[in-house]
Nucleic acid binder design. Structure first.
Lengths: 113, 113
DNA sequence: GTAATATACCTCACCTGTCAAGGTATATTA
DNA sequence: TAATATACCTTGACAGGTGAGGTATATTAC
């Protein structure tokens, strides 16, 4: 949606895992929370979101179950596993390294002549 | 090479443009400088580098010319254009927005109970 | 002499994550 | 009964990254 969409690439899994640290949730809710947290500057695309869920489940980082809503659309809830927490820590550490590297590489050296 | 390679995706062009701000340079040199600036934590892959050069040249952000070295391997030098400077400014601004968004999305809220 | 290493360029085919476009179904409001 | 919001899902195409391969020059080591 926004200009920054391209740059979020590769961070989808970390964003999802970070949300699930606070408790089980489902796709629609995770996306809403993402929008709210960024002041509507960013939203995950649905296709991106669901393919990321598949990947994370295949990796054993999350597991899913159907909610028992009595009314409204069904919801598939996701829960983070121990492996998922480890993966989150790893991705967060990598992000911090990458952020520093990029900042180093693109910063204009200021002449304090 | 390093774990962060995936996360640099999408930033290759900005990294190249940032190097060229300091003056004309050539592929091998740009990659060496990148490695040095990051303390050997990161190096662009050659294929990545050269495809990025093609894109940037097609976009009119850079132009190239052969050096006139009397000995050693030939070098293709790249020079940043006015459009390239504008593009660099744009990419840098986008990176700053993306960095903030990601930090917002993955930061664990600390309980200061 | 020649093998190895460093410099320096380039291309191709493949992989992976993203996403536009399409689909299904339920509940509420107009 | 039409529109909107909630909620899920799949498919095919696309773009950037990259492993693997290639070319050529100059220097150093054996």
């Amino acid at each position: 949606m926004s200009i920054t969409a391209d740059l979020i690439r590769g961070h989808t899994e970390m964003i999802i895992l970070a949300q699930l640290l606070h408790g089980d949730s489902y796709g629609y809710q995770i996306n809403k929370a993402t929008q709210e947290k960024t002041g509507n500057q960013f939203a995950l695309k649905e296709a991106t979101l669901y393919t990321a869920f598949r990947r994370l489940e295949d990796m054993g980082c999350i597991y899913s179950y159907w909610g028992d809503e009595q009314s409204g659309a069904r919801r598939r809830y996701y829960s983070i596993t121990e492996r998922g927490r480890k993966q989150y820590e790893k991705l967060l550490a990598e992000w911090r390294v990458a952020r520093e590297l990029i900042d180093k590489l693109v910063a204009e050296e200021v002449d304090n002549g």
